[in-house]
């Protein structure tokens, strides 16, 4: 399990076809549009992130909490449950599952602050309510609490995981080559992964494919100086990262000198030599690139949805918006993306 994703509960029970996600929303679609449901996904990701940050929890815990939330709502409807309580319980259980537990009192207190700020004053004051929800939550999760995240795949792919592996005989994976990513590109990929948790990608795709898609997007934003390439590997047509992706670099405070890469247009063999250049590297990985591209597309649509949400929030100043800052959404001043580099862990 922990050593092998393919033997984990995550791989064997918690990856679903898209149709499962659609049917999970049947009840909700009677009350809301598809776009609004997409916004709930963004909103819930933001809320969980906010709450976890207030509780001093790390990015990995945030990601686990969001996966719990998504899994819960694969079996339940937003309209029939108390999303705020579920979100808080997800944070509370994720903190335990990731071995950085928080007290139920603090979880309730911080959740009240977060939800009050949003105008939801109904969050219970009673600790037992959250603890009770925890019971139902872990049952809904089939008691599967170990989650694999793209962050680890990312640092493994670029060989930044040289941490202590003492004793773990299988710890050192057999890697032929390592992807060379500068810190900026790595950070970009990390932010893209953060963003994927505003969607349900974690219910569909295994974490390493999401990581590869994030690398693809990151290199599109920041082509490595060494590489003489202009396009990512899987040479299908289709849009490259949109302007939304670029906004990412503005949001996260990473100076972006480059314009987004042109749409993939590579023809011919991969550039010779340089076994660690990103394109060659990505093309040597034994993965299905149609899936990677699918994820890339999804992230781009997510950014479009997110933009729309922000413009509508800016227009109406809706309380339930995910947007915490006012201003022009287009300019991308709205959201603060979790700025946590993978190296400081």
């Amino acid at each position: 399990m922990a050593a092998n994703f393919y033997l984990s509960s995550h791989a064997n029970y918690h990856l679903h076809p898209r149709s499962a996600l659609v049917s999970a929303r049947q009840e909700d679609l009677k009350h809301a549009t598809e776009q609004e449901l997409g916004w709930i996904e963004i909103w819930s990701g933001s809320v969980i992130q906010k709450l976890c940050k207030r509780l001093g929890l790390r990015q990995q815990v945030i990601a686990t909490a969001i996966v719990f939330f998504r899994r819960f709502y694969l079996r339940n409807s937003y309209c029939e449950t108390d999303c705020a309580l579920v979100a808080a319980a997800c944070c509370y259980v994720a903190a335990k599952a990731e071995e950085t537990p928080v007290h139920v009192k603090s979880a309730v207190a911080e959740a009240r602050v977060v939800f009050n700020d949003m105008g939801l004053s109904s969050f219970p004051t009673d600790n037992t309510k959250l603890a009770e929800m925890e019971f139902y939550l872990i049952e809904e999760l089939d008691f599967h609490l170990v989650i694999f995240h793209p962050y680890r795949s990312l640092v493994q792919l670029c060989g930044r995981d040289g941490g202590p592996t003492a004793g773990g005989e299988v710890g050192k994976a057999t890697r032929s080559a390592m992807l060379e990513m500068d810190d900026t590109a790595l950070q970009m990929a990390w932010f893209v992964i953060n963003d994927t948790f505003r969607s349900s990608l974690c219910l569909i795709h295994p974490p390493h494919l999401i990581a590869i898609a994030a690398i693809y997007l990151a290199f599109s934003l920041h082509p490595p100086p060494s590489a003489n390439i202009t396009a990512p590997p899987p040479a299908t047509t289709g849009s490259g990262p949109s302007s939304r992706t670029r906004r990412q670099s503005i949001d996260s405070g990473v100076p972006s000198s480059s314009t987004p890469a042109a749409p993939p247009a590579r023809t011919g063999p991969p550039p010779p030599g340089g076994q660690t250049d990103p394109i060659t590297f990505l093309s040597t990985l034994n993965v299905d690139y149609t899936l990677v591209l699918e994820i890339v597309q999804e992230v781009i649509s997510l950014y479009e949805l997110w933009n729309a949400l922000e413009s509508s929030a800016a227009g109406t100043a809706a309380g339930a918006s995910a947007s915490s800052g006012g201003g022009k959404a287009r300019a991308g001043t709205a959201k603060t993306i979790a700025v946590k580099t993978p190296f400081t862990s």
Binding site: K96, V104, T128, L130, A131, E134, V146
Partner: peptide, 13 residues
């Protein structure tokens, strides 16, 4: 309900 203990949580997980 006061929350599941870390020990029980580990054993389950």
């Amino acid at each position: 309900y006061t929350g599941i203990s870390q020990s029980a949580c580990r054993e389950i997980m």
